[in-house]
Nucleic acid binder design. Structure first.
Length: 596
RNA sequence: GGACCCGUGGUGUAGCGGCCCAACAUGCCAGCCUGUCACGCUGGAGAUCGCCGGUUCGAAUCCGGUCGGGUCCGCCA
């Protein structure tokens, strides 16, 4: 093992029966102490594991007495002989559990105050703010350590796989130019140029495209990105992405390369997990929305959406009739065996549907005689057979139905209910990883507020080539060569084939209301570069925190981030952000105005 | 910008108008204990209930505000 240094001969995860008889020196933290008077056991911990060391009043009285001072989290160094534990006292829970070190020499390398929370046991309810304030102690806890090591193995495997396929890692700058597109920028004031600001990258998008123009036809980078938008459990102000770009490729090529890397990496890093399907399923956006109510569906379970628009077209029920008359849709999911849900449970589901933009939720339970029961049942009597036929619902089942004048709204609201029911029914198997491609997104969406078309994803994404001619004639009807990679209901990454011809890019931007001057000002370098032999190219970016979180079965990316920010963007350990003093402000040509 | 939830010894919880200057577990300290591994036993110290204000004879408990944390909507090309 490489971790041998002059203060230790072995790590705390290393000793086995084969070491019995060797004299060793270990250094680490006191994980736990069991004091039996004339005999004291210490569990000594480092990042490699735990080893039991013993001091004895009979064998080494002075050492025994000296060691008795040590408390939890003190850093100590011990020397002694490795010996097999007495018959019947081996600990099968520990890899090192067959042996122990009979300590004859101990030295305290550093004492520790009593920590503000337990390092040596799990503590589910522990206030996260406290963990963040003492993150260096939190990171010492074995579950956090394991997640950090998992993340390191993931990064390493990604690099190994990509480099084996001739990808080259190229770093791009962190101080770049602000552009109003996309998320809000974090900005950095320039000292040398008064009144001017850099922006921190939301992603190295333009730079990696410029690298393609430069001929580095397979680029990757573990790229740090920053977006000044409100946090969620799956996104924070700064994050890391595996940024990839390739030249001379079609969608197929990028997806194949990424899929090969993702599959190989997953198998190396979490061999115990099951990838539900390879090659990864591919769903067109429209299909993902219609079947799962999401553009990042969780494919670990079925419970697909069923469209009832036709079955219910004749029903005299305002909620459905109005939605359908307005050109909308009615969707349902069938929750098997949930017909007995209580009023409270149904209210919770209704609240969820409303939060997701639905006007309401119609719930029907199927009685043992096949009749439907629920607040809206009396309106549906004439159609109950059609509903049962369309949904396949059986006695004891619960049907959840959402109608909306907007098809996507109905589908996404029900998609959220599907996830909730999947959770409640235990269908989201934590052992399974269900990667899925979602592709062929609409290229533009109408922005009612700005009264213009806007890119659904990335403004540099290319239209499906055969559709490019219709861009101006039918902006809402054409699709982008855009593909997202989803995993267990989370968006892991997204990418596209880019526009590599200046005229086409200008047309796309013009459609989004950009003037030629505005484009030159903001994207001048890229536009110019496209005129110097830009090859066809495309790529993807994969969110590292989300990926690790899913591989570690964590709900929250803070659990896989060494030093995360709070929801309001604070670093509770460092106390950031903080004010600047007057001199710093003056150098940066800034004046702070807190008046509001 | 908005909605909701949380904030009681070091930590996690209980208490939710007077029986509480606050209970339980764990941790901490001390003593005892030669085979433990969440060691055990005995004893002890430790919180005026995030903060400010109000209601009340009386507030951890009710109300308002505020600070911190979380979840969500908006936002996130």
């Amino acid at each position: 093992m490489a971790a041998h240094q002059s203060l230790r001969t072995h790590t705390c995860g290393e000793l086995r029966a084969t070491h019995v008889g060797e004299r060793v020196t270990l250094a680490g933290w006191v994980h736990r102490r069991r004091d039996h008077g004339h005999l004291t056991f210490f569990d000594l911990r480092d990042r490699y594991g735990i080893t039991q060391v013993v001091t004895s009043a009979d064998e080494a009285p002075a050492t025994h007495e000296a060691a008795a001072e040590a408390r939890n989290e003190w850093v100590i160094q011990v020397s002694g002989a490795v010996r097999r534990r007495p018959e019947g006292t081996a600990n099968r829970e520990l890899p090192t559990g067959e042996v122990e070190v009979a300590v004859d020499e101990v030295s305290v390398l550093n004492e520790s105050k009593v920590p503000p929370f337990y390092i040596n046991e799990e503590q589910p309810g522990l206030e996260e703010a406290l963990r963040l304030q003492y993150r260096y102690l939190d990171l010492r806890r074995p579950p956090m350590r394991d997640r950090m090591l998992l993340r390191a193995r993931l990064s390493s495997a990604i690099r190994r796989e990509l480099e084996a396929e001739d990808f080259v890692e190229i770093e791009t700058p962190l101080l770049i130019r602000s552009t109003p597109e996309g998320a809000r920028d974090f900005v950095v004031p320039s000292r040398l140029q008064a009144g001017q600001f850099y922006a921190l990258p939301q992603s190295p998008q333009q730079l990696k495209q410029l690298l393609m123009v430069a001929g580095y036809d397979r680029y990757y980078q573990m790229a740090h990105c920053m977006r000044d938008e409100d946090s969620r459990k799956d996104r924070g102000p700064e994050f890391t992405q595996v940024d990839i770009e390739m030249s001379f490729v079609r969608e197929e090529d990028v997806m194949a390369a990424v899929e090969a890397m993702v599959t190989a990496v997953t198998r190396q890093v979490v061999p115990e997990r099951q990838i539900s399907q390879t090659p990864f399923p591919r769903l067109r956006y429209e299909e993902a929305l219609a079947r799962f109510g999401s553009d990042k569906p969780d494919l670990r379970f079925g419970m697909e959406l069923m469209e009832l628009s036709d079955a219910l077209r004749v029903v005299d029920f305002r909620v459905f009739a109005d939605a359908l008359a307005a050109g909308g849709a009615v969707f349902a999911i069938r929750a098997q065996g949930c017909g007995g849900y209580s009023r409270k449970q149904l209210d919770e589901l209704t609240d969820l549907a409303k939060r997701q933009g639905a006007a309401g939720l119609v719930h029907l339970s199927v009685e043992s005689d096949g009749s439907l029961r629920g607040p809206a049942a009396k309106f549906l009597e004439a159609s109950s057979a059609a509903v049962l036929a369309a949904t396949g619902a059986e006695p004891g089942d619960l049907l959840l139905i959402v109608a909306d004048a907007d098809r996507a709204t109905a589908a996404t609201a029900l998609g959220q209910l599907r996830l909730e029911m999947g959770e409640r029914l235990g269908l989201r198997d934590p052992a399974v990883l269900a990667y899925v491609w979602v592709y062929r997104f609409p290229m533009f969406k109408w922005d009612a507020d700005l009264n213009r078309w806007d890119a659904t994803h990335n403004p540099f994404s290319a239209p499906v080539w055969e559709e490019a001619d219709r861009m101006e004639a039918d902006p809402g009807g054409i699709h982008a060569q855009q593909y997202d990679l989803a995993l267990n209901g989370w968006e892991l990454g997204g990418g596209s084939i880019r526009i590599h011809r200046r005229d086409l890019l200008e047309r796309a931007f013009a459609l989004m209301g950009h003037t030629l001057e505005g484009m030159r000002d903001q994207f001048g370098a890229l536009l110019d570069a496209l005129e110097y032999g830009a090859p066809p190219h495309g790529g993807i970016a994969i969110g590292v925190e989300r990926w690790v979180a899913l591989l570690a079965n964590q709900e929250n990316i803070r659990e896989v981030t060494a030093f995360p920010k709070t929801q309001s963007g604070s670093d509770l350990m460092l106390g950031a952000p903080s004010p600047l003093d007057q001199q710093q402000l003056a150098e940066l040509h800034l004046r702070v105005d807190l008046g509001g």
